Amino acid sequence: MLADMSVGEAVETRPRRRGRAGFGGLLVVVLGLLFGVPWVTLVWSGNQWPTGVFVAGTVVFVLVPAVFPVLMFRGHGSHRDDRAARIADTTLGVIWVLFTWSVLGQVLGLVLLAAGVHDPVRSRVVSVVVVLVALVLLLWGYAEAMRVSRVRRVDVTIDRLGAGLDGLKVVLITDTHYGPIDRAKWSRGVTEVVNSLAPDVVAHTGDIADGEVDQRREMAAPLGDIRASMARVYVTGNHEYMSGAQGWVEHMSALGWDALHNRHILVSRGGDSLVVAGVDDRTAAGSGVPGHHADHEAALAGADPGLPVLLLAHQPQMIAGAVAHGADLQLSGHTHGGQIWPFHYLVRTDQPSLQGLSRHSERTQLYTSRGTGFWGPPFRVFAPSEITLLTLRRPA
């Protein structure tokens, strides 16, 4: 028996070791590129810096990537060390911006070379421009991330909308990501803006927080003060499934929101009704949380098929289910509009929409919010956050 167990454990261990080795190798390559390209541009290249500057710069670009994974795993792993997470997240944002503009700086270097500018002047000009651009974007991006989101107003025409619901105001907030940075004051500001819009329906399409309810309770508390004349509705995002999803579903219910855990409600006015349905995030099925999975049929079970359907689903990629089940409008978040340019190119490889209103069948439209908060790096570069006021209209 012991021999059999040892052989079985050895067989299972080898794939795990290979998986860890593969992940470790990928991590080294990614960090090598993210930190290596700025090092080449700012320190090595043809700058011909004094020896002390070269050595100091090289030490920084070696030590930071060595410590970065430790801080990231400690901050976002089981330890939930908010201080480590803040340092790691900020570092990630800074190095992404430096990497992007170091790559673009090489183009500037070629232009200067063609103009007859030689090293070290050429490389030093490139270095100074890259640092200045990165600094301006990071300061601006931080201010954009930390400010209370602007209101984005969108009219959406729904063919099947009854006359009594014409002009219905739906406010969408999403991806609040209450996390390592204390944003309780910001959260109260969002609530004030939402209430100032006098909404009929308020929808939160997930990724409330990075952390369990007990960790983020104070930041989430202002959600309980949001007012809507007809309904406040919520669905889970992928980050809930790393942060105690069922706890957040129960907490939102305790705050007075309808947690649309694969179910729907009706809102009615002037003799006309709208089905407001929600499904769990597409990552729910693999999360191990009992009873959580995206189920459009359950969400719409018993609904009158003649009524228009407003569907909440965290990720735009879930639009296929909305089309298949005849939803009129899906509200989503998740993409953050890319958050830090040019990350949006990577987002588009996974999602059918980055931001805004799009049509996906004769009946079904999708609205994708850039998000109300931010994840990880406290920066938003060319991707401003939003609180969205969607006004539902009948055809002219």
Rank of each mutant, 00 (worst) to 15 (best):
V148W: 08
T176W: 14
V154T: 13
V190M: 09
N195V: 06
E144C: 05
I173K: 01
V190K: 03
D182T: 06
L168M: 12
T174M: 11
D155G: 02
T157N: 10
V148E: 02
R153L: 14
A184F: 09
I173P: 00
G164S: 12
R152K: 11
R153D: 11
V154W: 04
W186H: 14
G179S: 10
P180H: 13
V154C: 06
A145N: 05
L165S: 01
A143G: 10
M146Y: 11
S187V: 02
L168H: 01
L168Q: 01
T174K: 00
R183E: 13
V193R: 09
G167N: 06
G167L: 07
G179E: 15
R152I: 11
M146N: 14
R160C: 01
R147D: 14
D166M: 06
R150P: 10
R188A: 15
R147H: 12
R160T: 05
V193F: 05
T174I: 06
V171S: 00
W186L: 08
T176K: 01
V170Y: 01
L172Y: 01
V148K: 07
A145P: 01
V190I: 13
V170N: 01
D159C: 11
T157R: 13
V194S: 00
D182P: 08
V194N: 00
L161T: 00
V193D: 04
P180S: 14
